[in-house]
């Protein structure tokens, strides 16, 4: 084991050797990104109070717990399906199997985005857009930022599916999939923070 996330193993030769630096570099980037999210959380906490809400709707008025639960489950499942795709790559079970599980992950990612977009539309519909209050600005700064990351992850999956088809499972494709895997699991980690701090702690206030 030489880097965070799943390791390809010695039998992958060149890809395994290159992975060490590439994956480590990407992991450092994710740690930098972690600070961005961490600060957004801190800002959210400082604004989730009556002053920040400025007489506008609060967490209880705008959050839909059922929908959040569905999103959480979808994202958690997508972490598992990505893990299965990584395992298929590690154990060289063939391009088709990897693509299949990546496809499932992509579908789950899009499903997550769909539910999230529906929630956002509902919030705007009830007058809880970002311009309503500081609290809602903090919400709209944090949660859609995660959504943007998931969207980027979905685009990345599509690009990787194309590259797997055009190039085959060459070393650079494998190391990119390793990094994509880290990214995807990282987003699920951030979501744990979001559903706990933003939604659950918010609603229980």
């Amino acid at each position: 084991m030489r880097h965070p996330g799943i390791n390809l193993g010695e039998h992958h030769g060149e890809a395994h050797d290159q992975a060490e630096t590439l994956v480590f570099g990407f992991w450092v980037f994710l740690m930098s990104d972690l600070i961005i999210f961490g600060l957004m959380f801190a800002i959210y906490v400082t604004m989730a109070n009556p002053v920040g809400m400025a007489g506008g709707p609060g967490p209880k008025d705008v959050f839909d717990l059922t929908s959040v639960f569905i999103q959480t489950m979808i994202l958690l499942t997508s972490s598992l399906t990505f893990g299965i795709a990584s395992l298929a790559m590690r154990h060289e079970q063939g391009r088709g199997r990897i693509a299949l599980w990546l496809g499932v992950t992509l579908a789950l990612g899009l499903g997550f985005l769909g539910f999230e977009a529906r929630d956002f539309a509902n919030m705007i519909g009830m007058g809880a857009g970002p311009s309503r209050s500081g609290f809602l600005s903090a919400f709209w700064g944090l949660v859609p930022l995660h959504g943007l990351h998931v969207s980027a992850g979905c685009i990345w999956i599509v690009v990787m599916l194309i590259q797997m088809r055009t190039f085959g499972m060459i070393p650079i494709v494998k190391t990119r999939l390793l990094r994509l895997g880290l990214f995807w699991h990282f987003l699920d980690l951030i979501w744990v923070g979001i559903f706990t701090i933003v939604f659950l702690a918010g609603i229980s206030a």
Binding site: M1, P4, I6, V192
Partner: peptide
């Protein structure tokens, strides 16, 4: 509320550790 927040925080921390251990293999 205080008990609830502690419970939520503990669950989140444990879950993050679980993700690190089983998904990110740290």
């Amino acid at each position: 509320r205080p008990t609830l927040l502690i419970f939520l925080g503990a669950c989140a921390l444990v879950q993050i550790t679980v993700h690190f251990r089983f998904f990110l293999h740290i």
